[in-house]
Amino acid sequence: MFKVGIRGRAFTRAFTPKIRFNSTAATGQGPLSWVEYFQLKKQNSRINFVSGIFTGIGGSLLTLSYLGNIEIDVEKPILGFDPIMMMGGAVIVGGLLGYLVGPFIGSFVFRLKNKSSLKEFEVKNSYFLSRLKSKRPDPSSQSFSNPIPDYYGERIYSLKDYRQWLRDCNAFRRKAKEFL
């Protein structure tokens, strides 16, 4: 692009694009820290739980509305059970199936909400799960009095929880070694 400068001379303005191709530097946030990772993990878990509750209620209401519109003979048993009991069981099963659908919707909402840091979260999550896999004890030596601590690390939401999980795993190993 040419512009007219001082005393009528033309000069070019250097065009240097300020585009960076790695997503972490473009947002200015840098890599995802462990504290931020655990916050996102907790947020994902809560969103999945809440969406499970809503879809569970929706599933039971859908089942209830369907069963309310069909004609059932109350004197004739269904599979050998009272029809009212079967309808109540069907409403409960509809709610449970709805609750199971909830985490799919919750993970979709989480991905939409955290689009900018999703790749970093997934990288950190795979690294975290590989650490869990390498650090967790062998479950073959568990017993009723010595249960294995949180095998998949589902209740680890902070560095403090992770350190406590490591201590629990070491205690499990020590008890399993002493009592076998």
Rank of each mutant, 00 (worst) to 15 (best):
G102A: 12
E71R: 10
S65M: 14
L79A: 05
R7H: 14
N170D: 09
N44W: 05
Y37E: 13
L32F: 05
C169W: 03
I53F: 03
F81Q: 04
G98P: 07
R136A: 03
G8I: 04
V93Q: 01
A14S: 08
I78Q: 00
N114P: 04
F110E: 00
A26L: 09
E120T: 12
L129C: 07
R131K: 14
V123E: 10
F121Y: 11
D138I: 07
E154I: 11
L180Q: 04
V101A: 01
L40M: 11
E36Y: 06
V123F: 14
S45K: 13
R9G: 03
E36F: 05
D138L: 13
S23Y: 11
Q164I: 12
F2E: 10
K113A: 14
T16D: 13
I84P: 07
F121M: 13
R163Y: 01
Y99A: 14
F104E: 06
M87K: 03
F15E: 15
N48Q: 06
F49M: 04
M86Q: 01
Y162T: 05
F81K: 09
S51T: 00
G59A: 02
V35H: 12
K115Q: 10
L96V: 14
I19L: 10
V35A: 15
R13W: 01
K42P: 09
G56Q: 00
D150V: 09
G94D: 06
E120A: 12
L180P: 11
A90G: 08
V93Y: 06
L64N: 05
S145G: 02
G59I: 00
R111V: 13
F179T: 11
S134F: 15
P137A: 08
G98E: 09
Q39S: 15
D150H: 12
V74D: 09
E71C: 11
I92V: 04
R131H: 12
K42L: 06
D138V: 01
V93N: 12
F144H: 15
N114I: 11
G153H: 00
W34D: 12
E120Y: 08
A26H: 10
L118K: 10
N170A: 08
L180D: 10
I78D: 01
K41E: 14
T55M: 11
N125Q: 15
R174G: 06
